[in-house]
Design a protein around this nucleic acid. Structure first.
Lengths: 228, 228
DNA sequence: TACGGGATGTGACTAGTGTCACAAACATGT
DNA sequence: ACATGTTTGTGACACTAGTCACATCCCGTA
């Protein structure tokens, strides 16, 4: 892929939107272009973390497998997102895996390149700080939600998180199977199914050929804040 | 308090251990020294976040109140920790409160001072990035633990998190009441009590005059990884 | 030393969710 | 179109942990 194509893809996304050309050029020059098929792991839990990825296209799932085998999905990443910075920064192991859920491409940046870029472009660090701040916010709100609410409000929150803001017809960003939704929202597949059926009755969501669509966004937001 | 006293307190703690004198001096010069009594909020959920705190002495609890009133304790902070960076960085509201659980002092840094310091000392940003990386790691492991494990292993994890590494006699960093432990580990006071009693039987922990002591660190670690 | 408020211990009951088991629907490739 | 695997729908049941209700205990203070 050509450098200027890469540059324009990067520039479309939040983190890099206000990069100057120099910064983009440096990222692209030093990065490796990677392609992954659906189902392949871009990052493997347990590996040493010596590089960082910037998603260029496709979608990926970040998940951890606990020691008892339980899978916990932490997030879904789309193009423009940075992945794997944590292990790179603190030198520890990768604590989560990232798996492509469709054909995906990314720019891979080694630790050396990353450090050089950080040193050279001082705005880069500030941008990364902001990204990480947002990430901590999301994580905290997951903890809060998991702890404070029962399954209904919780599922509502996760559906809202998957919903596109100006969505035509309330379609979700990703078409997850009910088991995948379960791993994301932290509830069993069966329970997801029952909850979705109930909401479907009440015209809050529609479930058509496996795909969830939000009909009543306001109601769902209300449920997400509910007392129980 | 004198500047050099402050400097030596800061230098004792991880984040600032490898700061050069210039950086420390700048922090102290631009920071405001604050003191709080036990029970006072250093940071209030919902406020705009226009400053950051560096804990100098004492201990504080970071917690959120969900919209249904449920309190979730995210962490306990000790001297040397940075608090409130998230809202400062992303410009959003404070999503959690920080409350002194004993007489506490801190250095308060405004957004302007913070930005100047970041711009002037480029190592500062990298240090902060590392701190935040660690924070995301902790948050993710909380999510994993809350989701994947039942109450037993979960309490074990939180006790281990409160345990001092080279602890004499397995004493915890903080002497939390059972209700506070409950809010931290995400379980009811009564359930904490029962679990602690059971472990006390099995010589895994000792509960003496309200204070928990870890007797069998290895066993507790084992429980923390248990299948259920 | 008596009092009062908070922290702890414990039983009985209940609610919310997971698990298991299976049937039906759908998708995919040959 | 058929066969096979995956996803979805649903009932019955088990179990974890929360709630409620008290009895105790501990500790600082009047």
């Amino acid at each position: 892929m050509k450098a200027d194509e890469l540059a324009s893809i990067l520039a479309e996304h939040s983190l890099f939107a206000d990069c100057d050309e120099d910064e983009l050029a440096d990222l692209i020059l030093r990065g490796h272009f990677m392609q992954y098929e659906k189902g392949v792991e871009l990052i493997m839990q347990g590996d040493p973390g010596n590089s960082l990825l910037i998603l260029l296209s496709g979608n990926a799932r970040t998940s951890m497998i606990a020691s008892n085998g339980h899978e916990v999905v932490l997030d879904y990443a789309e193009a423009g997102q940075v992945l794997g910075e944590i292990a790179l920064l603190d030198g520890g192991e990768r604590t989560a895996s990232v798996t492509a859920i469709e054909p995906t491409s990314a720019l891979s940046i080694t630790r050396e390149a990353f450090e050089e870029i950080l040193a050279k472009h001082k705005n880069m660090a500030l941008r990364l700080l902001k990204v990480m701040a947002k990430r901590i916010r999301t994580a905290n709100s997951m903890i809060e939600g998991d702890r404070a609410y029962t399954s209904g409000p919780r599922l509502a929150r996760y559906l809202l998180r998957l919903s596109v803001v100006g969505a035509e017809e309330g379609r979700l960003k990703l078409d997850l199977s009910q088991s995948e939704l379960g791993n994301f929202a932290g509830m069993s597949r069966e329970h997801i199914n029952r909850q979705l059926s109930a909401w479907s009755e009440g015209q809050i969501v529609a479930v058509e050929s496996g795909k969830v669509r939000i009909l009543d966004h306001a109601m769902l937001s209300h449920i997400a804040e509910a007392d129980s």
